[in-house]
C-alpha cells in the first residue's frame, strides 16, 4: 500500500504560482475571448445558388406536334385534291415537295405502307381502309404489335395525370407525340446538369 509520503506530494505546495503564469493565463483567456467573439461564420449560402431552369423539368413530350395537325388532321388536303385517285409515281421516291421528310424507318421505306394512297388525309389500313389521324396507333400496330400491346396496358409510353382512374383522368400520348414517324429513333438530347458534388472546403474530388 502507498505510504504516508506526503513530502513528495506536498513539496510543491510551498511553491507559489509564478507571476508569469498568471499573466500568461490571463492573456490567453483574453485572447481566446477575443478570438471566440470574432469567430462568426458567414451565414447563408456561399456562392450563387443553383438555378433549376424550367427546361430541366419541362413536361412536354419529345416532339412538338403542330397544332393544326392535332386538331384538324394532316394538311395533305392543302395540296392534294381529296378526291384525286392514287398516285402513279414510284412509291419509294418522295416528290420534291416532300424533300424535307427524312425517311429512316428501318426496312419500311414505302410511303404508302403508312399513308393512304387513295385518301391522303388518312393513313392506310390493311386492305385499303382508312385510319384517321387521331387513331394513329391503329396504323403503328400493323407492324409494332408487341409495342402496341404494351402501350395499351400502359407499359410503353408515358401516361400523365392520375394512376387511379377513379380519382381523375389518365392521359395517354399518341405514338407520334414522342416518335417522329418518318425517323422514329429517339434523337439524343442534352442532359440536364450533373449534380454538384458536395465538397467541404479543401477537399478535392
Amino acid at each position: 500500500m502507498a505510504e504516508h509520503d506526503w513530502e513528495k506530494t506536498d513539496a510543491f505546495r510551498n511553491t507559489e504560482i509564478p507571476y508569469w503564469l498568471l499573466l500568461a493565463v490571463s492573456a490567453a483567456f483574453v485572447a481566446a475571448a477575443w478570438f471566440f467573439y470574432s469567430n462568426r461564420h458567414a451565414a447563408g449560402h456561399g456562392g450563387p445558388a443553383f438555378v433549376v431552369k424550367p427546361q430541366y423539368y419541362d413536361i412536354s413530350p419529345a416532339r412538338t406536334l403542330k397544332k393544326r395537325l392535332e386538331t384538324e388532321g394532316m394538311a395533305c388536303g392543302d395540296c392534294h385534291d381529296p378526291s384525286a385517285g392514287p398516285s402513279s409515281s414510284d412509291p419509294r421516291v418522295a416528290p420534291e415537295v416532300h424533300s424535307k421528310v427524312v425517311l429512316k424507318h428501318g426496312p419500311n421505306n414505302r410511303c404508302f405502307n403508312c399513308h393512304n394512297n387513295a385518301k391522303r388525309d388518312f393513313f392506310a389500313e390493311d386492305g385499303g381502309g382508312q385510319i384517321p389521324y387521331l387513331k394513329v396507333e391503329t396504323l403503328c400496330r400493323k407492324c409494332h404489335g408487341t409495342t402496341y400491346r404494351d402501350w395499351t396496358s400502359g407499359t410503353h409510353g408515358r401516361r400523365n395525370g392520375y394512376w387511379n382512374k377513379a380519382a381523375g383522368e389518365q392521359k395517354q400520348l399518341p405514338c407520334i407525340a414522342c416518335h417522329d414517324p418518318h425517323s422514329p429513333a429517339f434523337k439524343p438530347m442534352l442532359a440536364a446538369p450533373a449534380p454538384r458534388k458536395y465538397t467541404a472546403p479543401g477537399v478535392k474530388h
Binding site: E16, A32, F36, A43
Partner: peptide
C-alpha cells in the same frame, strides 16, 4: 502547483475553443 494550474488552464482554454466551435455549428 503551477504545473497543475498551467495544465488545467490550457485544457480549459481548449475546451472553451471547442465550445465556441460547437456554438458555430449549432447556428449553421
Amino acid at each position: 502547483d503551477w504545473r497543475y494550474y498551467a495544465w488545467m488552464s490550457g485544457l480549459a482554454l481548449l475546451s472553451l475553443a471547442g465550445l465556441n466551435a460547437y456554438s458555430v455549428q449549432l447556428v449553421h
